[in-house]
């Protein structure tokens, strides 16, 4: 799962990013509203952790603007503002959860995972397709109880598709998701990884939308 952490305090930002990466999340960071908006427009994240007191704007106003633009990425507000009217205001603006500072890392990670599960539409973050069990929290795929080995990039691709079931996921999006640290992929890299994924997981109903991207169809009640 790829997260965007928006936090202006450098010490806290570094600590939090390290904790998230340690917990298995891919984490990008932004120190300002402007940088955060630039990331959000790329649309490559599964969840945003947003501080409200940013140097170049208020987090609540920023979130409202994102929602008004149609950004539907789950947002967890992480802030020092702990008044209830501020929490209600944050949720009204479109936040999906609200955690106050100082936070306990374990609690924050649990809230992030829970929010991710809710965003995917499952109660435990597990998606089942014809005997294939995709555990989004454990980042693991099992077939008849046996693990199916996937590389990090294959998993990233699969996660992007599973968390957006029924929707067209563009190649550009997948490419940006796969390579986000200055890597320079070949033009057909996404197709190569998609072909590998189809070979390893033939149970998936993965279709190619010509000129657009890919779509994963999941059966109803796929979550458990």
């Amino acid at each position: 799962m790829r997260l965007l952490l928006v936090e202006d305090d450098p010490e806290l930002r570094a600590q939090l990013a390290a904790e998230l990466r340690q917990a298995g999340f891919a984490a990008d960071v932004a120190a300002s509203a402007r940088a955060a908006t630039a990331w959000v427009r790329e649309g490559v994240h599964d969840l945003i952790i947003l501080d409200l007191g940013l140097p170049d704007g208020d987090g609540v106003a920023l979130l409202k603007a994102w929602r008004a633009e149609g950004v539907s990425i789950p947002v967890l507000i992480l802030t020092a503002r702990d008044a209830w009217f501020e929490k209600v205001s944050g949720i009204e603006a479109g936040a999906d959860d609200y955690v106050t500072k100082p936070y306990h890392p374990q609690e924050l990670l649990a809230r992030v995972r829970a929010l991710f599960r809710r965003a995917v539409g499952t109660s435990n973050g597990v998606v089942t397709v014809e005997g294939l069990v995709i555990d989004l929290m454990a980042q693991q795929v099992r077939r008849n109880g046996q693990p199916v080995p996937l590389t990090a990039k294959e998993w990233s691709l699969l996660e992007a598709l599973v968390t957006r079931p029924g929707r067209v996921v563009t190649k550009d999006f997948l490419r940006a998701r796969l390579y986000h640290d200055g890597e320079d992929p070949d033009s057909n890299t996404v197709e190569v990884f998609m072909a590998r994924l189809r070979r390893k997981l033939p149970e998936l109903h993965l279709t190619t939308e010509r000129g657009l991207g890919y779509r994963l169809l999941l059966p109803r009640g796929r979550g458990s």
Binding site: L12, P102, Y103
Partner: peptide, 22 residues
């Protein structure tokens, strides 16, 4: 100002707590 004070105090406190946890 209360909201600003909360932010101004709690953010560095959170950082201190995180540092000490290291």
């Amino acid at each position: 100002q209360l909201g600003a004070l909360a932010h101004a105090l709690k953010t560095p406190l959170a950082a201190i707590v995180q540092i000490t946890r290291e």
